[in-house]
Amino acid sequence: MSAAGEREGMVRRLSHLDRRIIYLIVLICAAVPLVIGARVELSVGPPVRSLYDAVDSLPPGSYVYLAADYDPGSLPELYPMNVAFVEHLFSKDVKIIAASLWAPGPPLSQRVFDDIAPRYGKTYGEDYVNLGFKEGREAVMVSVAENLKGTFPEDYFGTPCGEIPMLDGINSLRDVSMIVNVSAGYPGIKEWVQQIATRFDIPVGGGVTAVSGPEMYPYIQSGQLVGLLAGMKGAGEYEQLLEKPGLGLAGMASQSSVHVAVIVFIGLANLFYFLDRRKGR
């Protein structure tokens, strides 16, 4: 076979590459950096920096409403954010009121508290509380903004909110300094902005899955969000600022290597497309 024929055959084989080989390459690109513990240095963007600064400037003893509106389906992106927020808030001695508008949210919040609270010597009911899940979406947001204990008469464990010491004097979201939302979709950060940030003038910031990121950036420019983490990269940037590496930073080397593979695949696919087209002429 001539050299031109061999080249043409190779191009044809590559342009009809079995998709399972592509899956395998992506799998290797994602797994190897995890196994060897590769790390990448992230450049922290302004949306992450501004959220970090806003949380960092909260005075000790102030309250934050941590809305854990996510589920295990978005765990890899949002759980590291939840961990980073709780680490940061506990390190600043800020009291956390956690609640969720997503049914699977409260056990995830509790898991974060169980992991982190002992390290900071925080006590349930005095330094943090988990109010659990409440159905009702935007209606619950508005309701909790006006009457916290009426909306959540009991916490996640069935304790009446009137018997929880840290909730003395906390009657509505007007009594908290900030709402931090970990949001996987609807209801989530967009609804917190629409229903609460603008109407009740309470600062809102938080983290979203990367898919939702572009939709939320206009709220930063308008000042309706104090800051935003988008996807695993956002979580990694926050962990870097916090100097507490977690899954966000650990996953970014894998993320980058897969991105390089995807870019190479796109480049090759376009190359083969144009070679095929030229041959057709």
Binding site: L27, P76, E77, V211, G231, V258
Partner: peptide
């Protein structure tokens, strides 16, 4: 930009599962 973020999101899910398999299950990391 939206598509790029979507790719990032889906890759994150893969990384999350791989992290689970390699650390919790196999103990490799």
């Amino acid at each position: 930009a939206s598509f790029g973020y979507t790719v990032m999101s889906r890759v994150s899910l893969l990384i999350g599962r791989l992290h689970f398999l390699l650390s919790d299950w196999l103990g490799v990391i």
